[in-house]
Design a protein around this nucleic acid. Structure first.
Length: 515
DNA sequence: AGACCGCGAC
């Protein structure tokens, strides 16, 4: 930009700015280069008496790409007002902006027809994407079905629209009927599976993709890593990591971030940290992955240190950053710190907290025994509290033995989350703790009547490449005796420092369920 | 003269 300004100055002196060809190059650079400056481009643009369609187009593109969608659209309106005729290059960039501004897409489609650009394949494809992004699959389908010509992009865009809508059955048959597939088709299908929770399926697809000799791109690999995070499939995750190191000189930022998240979620916080330390040009998402990873592992100190470090690097935290920071505070019971961050988030950064943020605050206040403040906070929430928020309060009521508030929270939870057996158990335990055995039994009866059963707890662990699964109460593991002995020893060790109040004896059935 | 469509990790 510095050099560019110098050139611009020279152009003004020589009168070259008035030459539209020269000025165009200047504006093109400012609006599309990553180190450019959109406002600068705009100010040069405004000084041109007779801009051409090309100039309008690249400015609209600049705004659409930098997410200033409203500005992109108002620029387009201005262009029409000044009687410029949009061409085949105008619509693809404009429609990108339209996906984010409700109600604009359909009228732009009208302009496409009126200006005779409806047969241009890029324009048709952009329409499909626009409808897909605005959640209107049927309209996307209609454009696809009636389009005069289709290229690979058309098919891929339509596939993407189908997976976005969650209709994976249609997506499957569409994928199988495609006349040609490239790496992007495969990555669209793999990511579609991941986004719809079909993690195993996505790994299977990757195998097929390799059989067919299609080279995975960054998007494919990022999707697969996400699948591994969700499955806790560390070994597969490691394999993909090794694959990346084998095939790329340095993993892209997106891949590094996905790997950090995967290792953290699979329990390898050190591996996550190692990648984080090696990652250059970390962005907000990278920091968020690491902060949330430390929070998951209960490392409050590290999470908060990372937050400070991130701010020092002049990055602006967002709602996800604070989700990690607050949950770290909540795990460690750091009430004052948590409050500090909550005010930093809402006051300084003007971020609207979601249910998760409130859940952390309710948990913090509740554990500290400040139950009425916790309840007040829920009542003052501008968004509808999810069940987890009331769950945090119910838990606090159990810890601190507040029966009345517990009953109130319990009632809300029976409405909000009637299938969750844990809530019934906790509420019943609150009554039992207060000696109100009638109420305790009543809650249990209601639970039985509704046929709610406890989902058996299960855990998976991968050790030296083989998977060990434990389901609540099973005795199937070959080493079960050894494992139980170790658990007993650990329990005994913990009991010595266990909060006396919480270990208060209830009847045997209750004890089982709490554990 | 110069450009346009498919992909977003927390």
């Amino acid at each position: 930009m510095k050099q560019l300004r110098r050139i611009h100055a020279k152009m003004i002196v020589t009168g070259l700015v008035l030459e539209i060809a020269a000025a165009s190059r200047l504006i093109q650079f400012c609006s599309s280069s990553p180190c450019g400056d959109l406002h600068y481009a705009f100010s040069v643009f405004t000084q041109i008496a007779e801009p051409d369609v090309f100039l309008w187009n690249i400015l609209i593109k600049g705004y659409a790409q930098s997410r200033e969608t409203a500005k992109a659209i108002s620029l387009y309106r201005e262009m029409l007002r000044r009687s410029f005729r949009p061409n085949e290059y105008t619509f693809p960039v404009l429609l990108k902006a339209c996906s984010y501004v409700p109600g604009t897409g359909t009228s732009v489609q009208g302009h496409v027809l009126k200006t005779g650009n409806d047969a241009v394949v890029e324009v048709q494809n952009s329409l499909i994407c626009m409808y897909s992004r605005s959640g209107r699959v049927e309209s996307a389908c209609k454009v696809f079905d009636t389009s005069s010509q289709r290229d690979t992009v058309s098919w891929n865009s339509m596939l993407d629209a189908l997976t976005n809508s969650g209709d994976m059955d249609s997506a499957w048959s569409f994928f199988n009927s495609m006349p040609q597939r490239n790496d992007i088709s495969w990555s669209a299908m793999i990511n579609g599976c991941v986004n719809n929770g079909l993690f195993m399926k996505s790994l299977e697809l990757f195998e097929q993709m390799q059989v067919q000799n299609v080279k995975p791109n960054d998007r494919t690999l990022a999707g697969l890593i996400t699948a591994c995070s969700n499955l806790g499939a560390l070994e597969q995750g490691r394999w993909i990591h090794a694959y990346i190191e084998r095939t790329e000189l340095r993993p892209s930022l997106v891949l590094s971030t996905a790997l950090i998240d995967m290792y953290a979620k699979c329990g390898c916080i050190e591996a996550a940290r190692a990648i984080f330390d090696e990652t250059r040009n970390r962005d907000l998402v990278t920091w968020n992955a690491m902060i949330n990873g430390q929070a998951i592992h209960g490392n409050a100190k590290q999470a908060l240190a990372l937050f400070d470090e991130m701010v020092e690097c002049s990055l602006t935290p967002d709602g996800i950053t604070f989700a990690g920071v607050l949950s770290a505070c909540s795990h460690a019971g750091l009430l004052e710190k948590g409050q500090e961050y909550f005010y930093l988030m809402t006051g300084t950064h003007r971020i609207t907290p979601d249910s998760g943020h409130y859940g952390c605050m309710v948990d913090l206040l509740g554990r500290a025994g400040r139950l009425s403040e916790a309840e007040q906070l829920i009542k003052a929430m501008p968004v509808k509290p999810e069940s987890s928020v009331w769950g945090a309060l119910l838990n606090a009521c159990w810890v601190h033995g507040n029966t009345e508030m517990g009953a109130r929270a319990g009632r809300v939870l029976m409405e909000l989350d009637p299938e969750n057996s844990g809530r019934y158990t906790l509420l019943s335990n609150i009554f039992a703790k207060a000696g109100d055995w009638n109420e305790a039994a009543l809650v249990r009866k209601k639970m039985k009547e509704k046929g709610i059963r406890k989902t058996p707890g299960s855990s998976l662990i991968e050790l030296n490449g083989s998977l060990h699964e434990f389901v609540m109460g099973d005795q199937l593991h070959p080493d079960i005796e050894h494992i139980c002995k170790l658990v007993d020893d650990l329990t005994a060790e913990m009991a010595t420092s266990y909060d006396k109040e919480r270990s208060e004896a209830l009847d045997l059935e209750d004890q089982e369920e709490i554990l």
